[in-house]
Write a protein that binds this DNA or RNA. Structure first.
Lengths: 110, 110
DNA sequence: CTAACGTACAACCACATGGTTGTAGATTCC
DNA sequence: GGAATCTACAACCATGTGGTTGTACGTTAG
């Protein structure tokens, strides 16, 4: 299937997005890079929990980390974001076209 | 957060999409409605497993079922698909804009 | 040098997930 | 009416997930 080139990728990406904390981390980190502990302070959970969320986002290639001294700066991955956008585009277009086609049929039937 | 009106919805939707079988079911039933057992025949797993996948898609409001005799016809939910498209649009635009802004900064710095 | 900080990771827990088999209720076919 | 079909759902199992605490290690600040 065209849209599913890289099924595991899609799995990882959608799974990474299926958690409100991770979506929030992602949007923050796209705005500007933040260290893991800076992120950790924002949420009502332990450092370790947030660190794990970052790992999930990392494995989905949605963020990357770069050392700055003893800190690890988390950033939204511009290239990966393009990939996701394209992935979403694929589904979106596919679904919209099909949904549109269904609507036409429904309208014709009336 | 604007894009997160309905966090649980987004959770359910992304989670529903984070499985290749469910994405395949979804694209098929958008094309044309199919009974649960027709779907079940397509995958190397039990009827019950497929039925559960359909339930997950249903809870995410991505599909709906309507009885036809003893069969239950699964269809892609046109209205819900619009909602998803809008949801994806929101993230996509948000991310693209931010990604674009980051790129500009990076280019300026060079 | 030492203390504090930032990170990584292991071990553990409760619960969700994705799969199985089995059973039972409707509906249709003959 | 009786058999076959389609669906729903419970019970069970292995594994994954999201959280915790504790520990270890590198880096920076005093």
């Amino acid at each position: 299937m065209v849209v599913d080139s890289g099924v595991a990728d899609a799995d990882r990406v959608f799974h990474a997005l299926a958690d409100a904390t991770r979506r929030d981390i992602l949007t923050r980190v796209i705005r500007s890079g933040m260290s893991v502990s800076e992120l950790a302070r924002l949420y009502p959970m332990s450092f370790a929990a947030v660190q794990k969320h970052v790992v999930v986002l990392e494995r989905a290639a949605l963020v990357s980390k770069t050392r700055r001294g003893r800190e690890q700066i988390v950033r939204g991955e511009v290239e990966a974001l393009r990939r996701v956008a394209r992935l979403l585009d694929g589904y979106e277009r596919l679904w919209r076209h099909r949904a549109a086609a269904i609507e036409e049929i429904l309208e014709e039937e009336q």
